[in-house]
């Protein structure tokens, strides 16, 4: 039978920064083909297909909080596979190979992580699960 794709609305204009992305205009309606946990979603718009940032999309049928896992305040252990330097003041700067605790896996690909006393956003694409849960 036909595959039903979720429809999302673009909330702000976005200019693509690499070849296989889509340019977005506020109000455009996109069909989502694949939701990658790194925050890039493969979308269809008219006859075009490409990647769009989930952070610029909202579901047509209201908030998608049901899709988003609840925060896990105990934390799940991950290792950084790449360093990242914070750009916004709510982000964390980490080096390659650091172990951190993931508290909230947000759909836009920016996860809330904790390192010691500090908590902030980090790109999920630079994290790899160690498969362990933190012992309390």
């Amino acid at each position: 039978g036909p595959i039903m794709l979720d429809t999302y609305r673009v909330i702000a204009d976005y200019s693509k920064s690499s070849k296989y992305e889509l340019n977005l205009k506020a109000g455009d309606l996109l069909d989502i083909v694949e939701k990658s946990p790194n925050g890039w979603w493969f979308c269809q718009y008219d006859t075009q297909r490409g990647w769009a940032p989930a952070s610029y999309l909202e579901p047509l049928d209201g908030p998608d909080e049901s899709e988003e896992p609840e925060p896990n305040y105990a934390g799940e252990l991950y290792k950084t596979t790449k360093g990242y330097t914070a750009v916004e003041d709510d982000e964390l700067t980490l080096q390659l190979g650091e172990t951190i605790e993931v508290i909230h896996k947000l759909l836009d690909g920016w996860w809330v992580v904790r390192k010691g006393e500090k908590t902030g956003f980090y790109p999920s694409m630079f994290l790899h699960s160690t498969g362990e849960r933190r012992e309390l």
Binding site: I11, A12, Y14, S17, S18, Y20, E21, V33, E34, S36, N38, G39, W40, F42, G50, W51, P53, A54, S55, Y56, Y84, E88, D108, G109, W110, F121, P123, M125, F126
Partner: peptide, 22 residues
């Protein structure tokens, strides 16, 4: 076939959306 997703982190949500989430 689906191309690989971009290798760079996606942009953070637009500023007004970010406030709404907090």
């Amino acid at each position: 076939s689906i191309k690989q997703p971009p290798q760079n982190p996606p942009p953070r949500p637009p500023a007004d959306m970010r406030r709404k989430r907090l």
